[in-house]
Protein backbone atom coordinates (compact mmCIF):
# COMPACT_ATOMS: atom_id res chain seq x y z
CA UNK A 1 0.00 0.00 0.00
CA UNK A 2 1.26 3.46 -0.84
CA UNK A 3 0.70 6.77 0.87
CA UNK A 4 0.18 10.27 -0.46
CA UNK A 5 1.70 13.54 0.70
CA UNK A 6 -0.67 16.30 -0.38
CA UNK A 7 1.12 19.63 -0.75
CA UNK A 8 -1.03 22.72 -1.08
CA UNK A 9 1.07 25.34 -2.91
CA UNK A 10 -1.59 28.05 -3.06
CA UNK A 11 -0.37 31.50 -2.00
CA UNK A 12 -3.38 31.65 0.33
CA UNK A 13 -3.26 28.00 1.34
CA UNK A 14 -5.17 28.15 4.66
CA UNK A 15 -8.16 29.86 2.99
CA UNK A 16 -7.80 28.46 -0.51
CA UNK A 17 -10.00 26.55 -2.91
CA UNK A 18 -6.98 24.26 -3.27
CA UNK A 19 -7.46 23.28 0.38
CA UNK A 20 -11.05 22.25 -0.38
CA UNK A 21 -9.91 20.25 -3.41
CA UNK A 22 -7.24 18.59 -1.29
CA UNK A 23 -9.87 17.65 1.33
CA UNK A 24 -12.06 16.08 -1.34
CA UNK A 25 -9.12 14.12 -2.71
CA UNK A 26 -8.30 12.79 0.76
CA UNK A 27 -11.95 11.73 1.20
CA UNK A 28 -11.93 9.68 -1.97
CA UNK A 29 -8.43 8.29 -1.83
CA UNK A 30 -8.18 5.02 0.05
CA UNK A 31 -4.46 5.38 0.61
CA UNK A 32 -3.17 7.08 3.74
CA UNK A 33 -2.81 10.82 3.09
CA UNK A 34 -1.01 13.64 4.87
CA UNK A 35 -1.88 17.26 4.11
CA UNK A 36 0.79 19.99 4.15
CA UNK A 37 0.97 23.62 3.05
CA UNK A 38 3.97 25.35 1.51
CA UNK A 39 5.16 28.19 3.73
CA UNK A 40 8.26 30.33 3.36
CA UNK A 41 9.82 28.64 6.38
CA UNK A 42 9.05 24.93 5.80
CA UNK A 43 10.58 24.08 2.40
CA UNK A 44 13.34 21.87 3.77
CA UNK A 45 11.00 20.12 6.17
CA UNK A 46 8.69 19.20 3.28
CA UNK A 47 11.64 18.04 1.15
CA UNK A 48 12.79 15.71 3.93
CA UNK A 49 9.29 14.34 4.48
CA UNK A 50 8.90 13.32 0.83
CA UNK A 51 11.09 10.23 1.08
CA UNK A 52 8.47 8.62 3.34
CA UNK A 53 5.74 8.70 0.69
CA UNK A 54 5.01 6.70 -2.44
CA UNK A 55 3.19 9.66 -4.02
CA UNK A 56 3.16 13.43 -3.76
CA UNK A 57 0.21 15.47 -4.96
CA UNK A 58 0.74 19.18 -5.61
CA UNK A 59 -2.49 21.18 -5.43
CA UNK A 60 -2.42 24.79 -6.57
CA UNK A 61 -4.20 27.50 -8.57
CA UNK A 62 -3.07 28.75 -11.96
CA UNK A 63 -1.34 32.12 -11.54
CA UNK A 64 -0.55 34.29 -14.56
CA UNK A 65 -0.91 31.27 -16.85
CA UNK A 66 1.58 29.08 -14.97
CA UNK A 67 2.66 27.82 -11.56
CA UNK A 68 2.46 30.29 -8.66
CA UNK A 69 5.70 31.72 -7.25
CA UNK A 70 4.98 29.87 -3.99
CA UNK A 71 5.39 26.57 -5.83
CA UNK A 72 8.21 27.77 -8.08
CA UNK A 73 10.32 28.68 -5.05
CA UNK A 74 9.54 25.38 -3.37
CA UNK A 75 10.55 23.42 -6.49
CA UNK A 76 13.88 25.26 -6.56
CA UNK A 77 14.52 24.20 -2.94
CA UNK A 78 13.44 20.65 -3.74
CA UNK A 79 15.81 20.50 -6.72
CA UNK A 80 18.67 21.41 -4.38
CA UNK A 81 17.54 18.93 -1.70
CA UNK A 82 16.34 15.86 -3.55
CA UNK A 83 15.03 12.98 -1.42
CA UNK A 84 16.92 9.69 -1.65
CA UNK A 85 13.81 7.81 -2.72
CA UNK A 86 11.69 9.75 -5.15
CA UNK A 87 7.91 9.57 -4.93
CA UNK A 88 5.67 9.79 -7.97
CA UNK A 89 4.48 13.37 -8.43
CA UNK A 90 0.89 14.15 -9.47
CA UNK A 91 -0.75 17.55 -9.85
CA UNK A 92 -4.22 19.02 -9.37
CA UNK A 93 -4.53 22.54 -10.81
CA UNK A 94 -7.52 24.85 -10.74
CA UNK A 95 -8.07 27.95 -12.83
CA UNK A 96 -10.92 30.43 -12.74
CA UNK A 97 -11.60 30.18 -16.48
CA UNK A 98 -14.01 27.66 -17.94
CA UNK A 99 -11.37 25.95 -20.09
CA UNK A 100 -9.45 23.35 -18.05
CA UNK A 101 -6.82 23.25 -20.80
CA UNK A 102 -5.67 26.70 -19.70
CA UNK A 103 -3.80 24.65 -17.05
CA UNK A 104 -1.78 22.74 -19.67
CA UNK A 105 1.34 24.92 -19.42
CA UNK A 106 1.50 24.46 -15.66
CA UNK A 107 1.20 20.67 -16.09
CA UNK A 108 4.02 20.74 -18.67
CA UNK A 109 6.22 22.71 -16.26
CA UNK A 110 5.76 20.10 -13.53
CA UNK A 111 6.43 17.28 -15.99
CA UNK A 112 9.63 19.03 -17.03
CA UNK A 113 10.66 19.43 -13.39
CA UNK A 114 10.06 15.71 -12.80
CA UNK A 115 12.06 14.61 -15.87
CA UNK A 116 14.91 16.93 -14.97
CA UNK A 117 15.13 15.66 -11.41
CA UNK A 118 14.30 11.97 -11.78
CA UNK A 119 10.81 11.96 -10.25
CA UNK A 120 8.25 9.72 -11.94
CA UNK A 121 5.25 11.79 -13.08
CA UNK A 122 1.84 10.41 -12.14
CA UNK A 123 -1.60 11.87 -12.82
CA UNK A 124 -2.77 15.36 -13.71
CA UNK A 125 -6.20 16.78 -12.85
CA UNK A 126 -7.09 20.05 -14.59
CA UNK A 127 -10.02 21.93 -13.11
CA UNK A 128 -11.77 24.71 -15.05
CA UNK A 129 -14.17 27.20 -13.40
CA UNK A 130 -12.27 26.28 -10.26
CA UNK A 131 -13.11 29.44 -8.35
CA UNK A 132 -16.81 28.64 -8.22
CA UNK A 133 -17.59 25.05 -9.22
CA UNK A 134 -17.51 23.77 -5.63
CA UNK A 135 -20.35 26.08 -4.63
CA UNK A 136 -22.63 25.13 -7.54
CA UNK A 137 -24.73 22.02 -8.28
CA UNK A 138 -22.00 21.14 -10.82
CA UNK A 139 -19.80 19.99 -7.94
CA UNK A 140 -21.19 16.49 -8.61
CA UNK A 141 -19.18 16.44 -11.84
CA UNK A 142 -16.11 17.55 -9.94
CA UNK A 143 -16.62 14.84 -7.33
CA UNK A 144 -17.08 12.13 -9.96
CA UNK A 145 -13.86 13.13 -11.70
CA UNK A 146 -12.04 13.50 -8.37
CA UNK A 147 -12.90 9.86 -7.61
CA UNK A 148 -11.36 8.76 -10.90
CA UNK A 149 -8.29 10.90 -10.30
CA UNK A 150 -7.74 9.53 -6.78
CA UNK A 151 -8.31 5.96 -7.98
CA UNK A 152 -5.68 6.46 -10.67
CA UNK A 153 -3.11 7.34 -8.00
CA UNK A 154 -4.27 4.58 -5.69
CA UNK A 155 -3.98 1.91 -8.41
CA UNK A 156 -0.86 3.43 -9.98
CA UNK A 157 -2.70 3.60 -13.29
CA UNK A 158 -1.87 7.23 -13.89
CA UNK A 159 -3.63 9.44 -16.38
CA UNK A 160 -4.89 12.93 -17.20
CA UNK A 161 -8.30 14.13 -16.07
CA UNK A 162 -10.21 17.37 -16.43
CA UNK A 163 -13.50 18.88 -15.37
CA UNK A 164 -15.40 22.13 -15.72
CA UNK A 165 -18.96 23.42 -15.51
CA UNK A 166 -21.02 21.87 -18.32
CA UNK A 167 -22.45 25.18 -19.55
CA UNK A 168 -21.84 27.41 -22.55
CA UNK A 169 -19.12 30.04 -22.38
CA UNK A 170 -21.69 32.82 -22.55
CA UNK A 171 -23.60 31.32 -19.62
CA UNK A 172 -20.31 30.97 -17.75
CA UNK A 173 -19.51 34.64 -18.30
CA UNK A 174 -22.97 35.66 -17.02
CA UNK A 175 -22.66 33.37 -13.98
CA UNK A 176 -19.13 34.53 -13.19
CA UNK A 177 -20.23 38.19 -13.45
CA UNK A 178 -22.91 37.55 -10.79
CA UNK A 179 -20.37 35.68 -8.67
CA UNK A 180 -17.88 38.56 -8.74
CA UNK A 181 -20.58 41.21 -8.33
CA UNK A 182 -21.70 39.50 -5.11
CA UNK A 183 -18.08 39.17 -4.01
CA UNK A 184 -17.66 42.95 -4.40
CA UNK A 185 -20.96 43.66 -2.57
CA UNK A 186 -19.57 41.91 0.51
CA UNK A 187 -16.93 44.65 0.63
CA UNK A 188 -19.40 47.44 -0.22
CA UNK A 189 -18.05 47.78 -3.77
CA UNK A 190 -20.50 48.11 -6.67
CA UNK A 191 -20.22 46.50 -10.09
CA UNK A 192 -19.48 49.94 -11.56
CA UNK A 193 -16.65 50.50 -9.09
CA UNK A 194 -15.22 47.06 -9.82
CA UNK A 195 -15.36 47.86 -13.53
CA UNK A 196 -13.21 50.98 -13.25
CA UNK A 197 -10.73 51.34 -16.09
CA UNK A 198 -8.34 53.29 -13.86
CA UNK A 199 -5.14 51.64 -12.66
CA UNK A 200 -3.77 53.11 -9.40
Amino acid sequence: MGNVMIINASPRAPKSNSKEYAKLFAQYCQLQTEYCEVKKSNHLELCHMMAGFSDVLFVFPLYADSIPVTLLNFLKTLEANLPQTKPTISVMINCGFIEPQQNDTAVAMLQLFCRKNGFPFGSAFKIGSGEAILTTPFRIFLKAKMKKFSTSIQNRKYGTFQVTMPISKRMFIAASSSYWENYGKKHGISKEEMSTMQIE
Partner: peptide
Amino acid sequence: LQYGGYDTVMKTMLERSIPVQQAFIRL
Protein backbone atom coordinates in the same frame (compact mmCIF):
# COMPACT_ATOMS: atom_id res chain seq x y z
CA LEU B 1 13.96 30.96 -17.18
CA GLN B 2 13.06 28.19 -14.77
CA TYR B 3 11.16 24.98 -15.62
CA GLY B 4 9.86 26.55 -18.83
CA GLY B 5 8.57 29.69 -17.12
CA TYR B 6 9.83 33.01 -15.79
CA ASP B 7 12.11 32.71 -12.78
CA THR B 8 11.08 34.12 -9.40
CA VAL B 9 11.88 37.82 -9.81
CA MET B 10 9.89 38.37 -13.02
CA LYS B 11 7.11 35.92 -12.10
CA THR B 12 6.54 37.67 -8.79
CA MET B 13 6.03 40.98 -10.61
CA LEU B 14 3.74 39.46 -13.24
CA GLU B 15 1.57 37.93 -10.51
CA ARG B 16 1.39 41.32 -8.80
CA SER B 17 0.17 42.90 -12.05
CA ILE B 18 -3.39 41.59 -11.86
CA PRO B 19 -4.81 44.98 -10.77
CA VAL B 20 -4.62 45.90 -14.49
CA GLN B 21 -7.44 43.41 -15.05
CA GLN B 22 -11.00 43.31 -13.78
CA ALA B 23 -12.51 40.30 -12.05
CA PHE B 24 -15.07 40.16 -14.85
CA ILE B 25 -14.58 37.78 -17.72
CA ARG B 26 -14.97 38.16 -21.49
CA LEU B 27 -14.56 35.99 -24.55
